[in-house]
Design a protein around this nucleic acid. Structure first.
Lengths: 342, 342
DNA sequence: TTGTATGCGTTATCAC
DNA sequence: GTGATAACGCATACAA
């Protein structure tokens, strides 16, 4: 319990009159060390309060057992779910997880990437920021053969593992569901189309309509930044137009909620008069009134999968790797905001 | 851009026909190196794609520039806010942040602590788990003089920096508010009392009652783990008892929500018949129906402050430190679930 | 089964 | 202002 200074394998060796290498091997459960010696050594290590100096071991073995993670913002449900999943798998496999947030800022993302590289992380899991168009800082990892897994906001040009959600399918299912509930004039509050995920959601929406023989009406599609007031204003515009929609598929839950709020404020019944489906399954969507139908994005699973992929690659000793692009299925969660029939 | 193997300061030295020490000094902007040499070296380093091996430097200097963070669960708004705040400050000061979640499991928390110690993190910021009654694994840091900052769920026995929210004050204000709204039989759904924060919330609740001349009735206090069904069951028990309460102060928003759900399911009006106040200001609390009155905890600020404290201590070279306990103010946010008068 | 010797890349101490 | 050299703690190739 005292404030002893660091104990090393040499201290243990000296005390037991054996060599440091034997101690090193015993503590690593190397089978060539006899049972008896190993026990003596472990006992002494325990008693002396030995804690391995992992810095020294890392330095020696050129491995850090650390996975670097870069996300736009930690404090966001989807990303913190992914991180939680990564951490769980990584921890079980003896890896440490280092987290950085880019704040959707390219310069910060670049600095983080260089720092992670200098820290010799064994692998990197990342989702790029809104501003990221140059990718030299990410190519670095690819060039130096540092295992990498992109998720959600991926870089198509870099050949490595990628995990994405099937946005097209999710949007398709959401729209189809609204049609099944009897809606025929279905609007869409969409995101910025320079981001692939929003483009795909919009495409899924359009495809579901045309497959059902409904013509896509561009006046029913409003793109914006998907914040609270974007949804509110978009809904207002849609509802005040002549021939208003009887359903809205929103590209995220935030706009779905603000749509509902606008409708309720104006005495328009959800889902009877206007049915709503959102996207992402944010925690609030299942507790608001009415509960919001939405598309689940399996953040925790994505994190687990990303960690599994990267650890597998790290442990594969740089043997040739076949890069996978995993498309995670989406799930339609039907709740009150869209359910007209039972 | 090729797949060169690691470049070291020796490679740069060789190329420029100078010594490695000069290179090392130049790259660290050591002023004793001449301007000209420094520029040559930096240029060469840049051209050769040199990335310092931080593992080696860490090993040599016994510093990792890494802050370890232990939280019960990453994917939870309060904690991810704190982490976000920590990361922001740490990044600015050149520190890396390593995150682990204990899942409120003592054994995992212990293993994490030993791992962080073995990794020689420069400091640890942590909030303990529900099960944590033994604290040997945390004493370790204190004994070895590793800077430590507790936040939210602190350990009183360990003398170090602590950042807490004024739980007593928050609970007091919440309860007082319920009294002002005309409630007189106010119940409390509390957390496990081994955690100081819940003890303080309970004390604040009791004090507010007695200050108002209301006797504390122990049958109106139910302690549990504050999950969804804990709140549901506790409310059921409270409501089905004779002489049911006309208000409930819940120690978190989760139980506040489940209380509301139970009440609504049973046709009991919130806030008219039973008024509710929660704690934490979870994002959902402002979007559910009714919106939930609650106590705001400044997570992001707590994280920033924690990072500042620990970095200050790390940089102080173990000079005698005066440990601070910072009490962050709380704020009562009045919403629909408790507002009877306007 | 155990011991000896060596080196990982950097920084720090001393010398020049 | 610069260079030579040692040292950090561990893991491992090789020797015994």
């Amino acid at each position: 319990m005292g404030n002893q200074s660091e104990i090393t394998i040499h201290d243990i060796a000296k005390k037991l009159n054996i060599s440091a290498s034997t101690v090193s091997r015993a503590l690593k459960d190397n089978p060539i060390i006899s049972e008896a010696t190993r026990k003596r050594i472990k006992k002494a290590a325990e008693e002396m309060g030995y804690r391995p100096n992992i810095m020294a071991a890392n330095f020696r073995t050129k491995r850090t057992n650390t996975i670097g993670v870069i996300v736009p913002l930690i404090n966001r449900h989807f990303f913190s779910s992914v991180i939680s999943g990564i951490e769980e798998v990584a921890y079980d496999q003896g890896f440490t997880v280092t987290i950085s947030q880019s704040n959707d800022n390219l310069e910060k993302e670049q600095k983080i990437a260089y720092t992670l590289f200098s820290n010799r992380v064994d692998g990197v899991i990342l989702s790029i920021g809104m501003e990221t168009k140059e990718i030299d800082h990410l190519q670095l990892f690819a060039n130096r053969k540092v295992p990498m897994v992109f998720f959600d906001r991926i870089v198509e040009e870099i050949e490595t593992h990628k995990i994405i959600v099937n946005d097209f399918e999710g949007a398709y299912k959401a729209t189809q569901h609204l049609i099944e509930q009897g809606a025929s004039r279905i609007a869409h509050i969409g995101g910025p189309l320079n981001l692939k995920i929003y483009e795909n959601r919009q495409k899924g929406y359009c495809k579901a309509l045309s497959d059902a023989g409904i013509e896509v009406d561009n006046s029913l599609i409003i793109n914006g930044n998907l914040r609270r007031d974007d949804g509110y204003k978009a809904t207002k515009k849609l509802v005040l137009a002549e021939n208003r929609p009887d359903a809205i598929f929103c590209a995220n839950d935030t706009t779905a909620l603000s749509a509902i709020i606008f409708l309720q404020e104006n005495g328009i019944k959800v889902p009877e008069e206007v049915a709503i489906v959102g996207f992402s399954n944010e925690p609030f969507s299942q507790v608001v009134t009415p509960t919001i139908s939405t598309i689940r994005q399996p953040g925790f699973l994505i994190g687990k999968k990303a960690a599994e992929l990267i650890i597998k690659q790290i442990n594969s000793n740089k043997k040739s790797v076949v890069y996978e692009t995993i498309v995670m299925p989406t799930e339609l969660i039907i709740r009150e905001s869209s359910k007209r029939k039972k």
